[in-house]
Amino acid sequence: MTCDLHPGSSFLHQLDPRLKIVIVAIWSFLAALIQTLPAASFALAGSLLFALAGRLSPRETLTRLVKVNAFLLVIWFLIPFSFSMPGRTVGSFGFFTVTAEGLQLALLLTLKANAVALGALAFFGTSSVTQLAAAAHRLGASEKITAIFLLMLRYFHVIRQEYVRLRLAMKVRAFRPTFSLHTYRSYANLVGMLMVRSMDRAGRVHAAMLCRGYTGRFWFYDHFSFTRLDLAGVALAILLVAGVLVLNVI
């Protein structure tokens, strides 16, 4: 299972991927609806518990969370200042005033976003993409969508490499992007060439699939079973969901 972000055999690694998708869906939906700070803090703590149960590598997880929080910076720059009308003023920078409501909302959003991100990382990072795709298929995602997802995953890198090669080939022939028609034309050629190559490759991949007995049905190399461990996962999830709900009402 080295295909996943965090290889291992923890409690979360052993959960049925189908169950993981369901839990993440419910957990994210719930986190999105949270209105109070205690409930949001509890949700984040719950996600942290999931992350611990999945034995996520702290460093990689933090790097990913930093990316999420970079987006939240924008919120911190805007929302504390945008409640000027009814809010209690906490402080002011010249023309701008910071309100308690604004700060509270920014904090709430930050907690919620991190809870969702960490929860998803904990569950999805402990299954291989193949497992998750197969699980999504079992849960009703169409065969086509699932196949497209898997193929996209595989060929994204191939096409990227092709792009990098073409770009280098342009560079070694002294191409330097400027504000000129030549630059735009060259970029258009690059994009066009990538598309043509991708088309050709798609044809060859299809031919290769035919050679291995593909007849239009996409089979998944996975089998799932719902075990007692999964029941424990369900119980844990229900407990945490209940906690969030109770705290959100209080």
Partner: peptide, 21 residues
């Protein structure tokens, strides 16, 4: 080109593709 032939995320998936079919 092996990139045309190997289209699955992992090695096991690719080796399993034919037998699954």
């Amino acid at each position: 080109d092996a990139n045309d032939q190997l289209f699955c995320p992992t090695v096991a998936d690719d080796l399993a593709f034919g037998p699954l079919n």
